[in-house]
Design a protein around this nucleic acid. Structure first.
Lengths: 174, 174
DNA sequence: CCGTACATGTAATTCGTTACATGATTTC
DNA sequence: GAAATCATGTAACGAATTACATGTACGG
């Protein structure tokens, strides 16, 4: 019943390959962004803690053209922790929507909410496609699956919202 | 950009009518449960704080057949806070999915994940329908909209997942 | 000169989760 | 006798949000 934690996300990513904090952030925000969250305020402190607790180790990489960076590598303890995560019960999906709350309570006019939401989702869908379509050929099956799932979800939501607006128009112009 | 808070949810509910903590919890978990979260550990302390800060007032209602209860009523300050919330930017939908993370990273076998997810969503959909279908006639437009949105989302997800399994079977039995 | 990509962090606070605790009444 | 519904809470801890802080290099 416990919720998905930053620790699990980060360690799972490091399970596959060593990464820097910046790369982890990039992956979470771009590739996993539609079903997981992560900000610098969460990631860097988490990495520090994880290192202190012996789940990962770090090495500094000197760069001359760009700022130096730290590459984190998972170690024995970290792998064990990921194993525990994998064997732990899958936590339930969580969907939080300010949009639906406002619609439900009718605090804001539904039509405005819908228009705004269409905008939001359209952007998210465009980003999702932009981030993934180019690399689709190299994707592992799971990545492809997750991508298709997300795309499908966004498209359905958009369809639903557009349908709503059309029905509204018809209702006002009989 | 700030996220939806318990405070806003509770005050918005109290904006319409006075409610007890238990009723608030019931509403959040049953009616708003597919797009908002709330537990006793969040609701009761929040109510206490809200009262202390002068957003709501409470009165005790003595009952003889059942335990006594406290009914909370929103006051001037509370209404003002709800107004601020209504006028504040709509925070983005948040979708967190342990299921998709595991699928993406292929930590667990996708087929097992999908089967499990179908189970979860089927239950949620059944609950959503059970909670709403009976009272559909008395629903305000916004409630109906939110309900249809949620139902549509769950159904689409289920379709997607079932389609995946079927494709898998065909792939293995050419 | 401006914005963006690269790169790492901290500090404060709020906030919520998780789990525990209690207890009456009704229904099966 | 057990389970569900009604009803309210606390306590500890962990975790994340939000915002701030800093700096290089490069392209337009």
């Amino acid at each position: 019943m416990t919720m998905l934690k930053g620790k699990d996300i980060i360690l799972s990513l490091l399970y596959k390959e060593p990464l820097t904090g910046y790369e982890i952030m990039e992956r979470i925000q771009n590739r996993l962004g539609y079903f997981v969250e992560g900000s610098t305020g969460m990631i860097y402190p988490a990495l520090k803690k994880l290192e202190k607790e012996g789940f990962i180790t770090s090495e500094e990489i000197i760069q001359h053209d760009k700022p130096n960076k730290k590459r984190y590598t998972i170690c024995e303890n970290g792998r064990k922790s990921v194993q525990d995560y994998i064997e732990s019960p899958i936590s339930q999906d969580k969907f939080i929507s300010d949009f639906l709350l406002r619609a439900y309570l009718e605090t804001n006019p539904i039509k405005e909410l819908v228009t705004h939401e269409i905008d939001q989702i359209t952007k998210k869908l465009a980003k999702l496609i932009a981030d993934n379509e180019a690399v689709i050929a190299d994707m592992a099956a799971g990545q492809l699956f997750a991508y298709e799932f997300g795309k499908n979800m966004y498209q359905t939501q958009l369809n639903f919202l557009h349908r709503y607006l059309e029905t509204e128009i018809r209702r006002n112009n009989p």
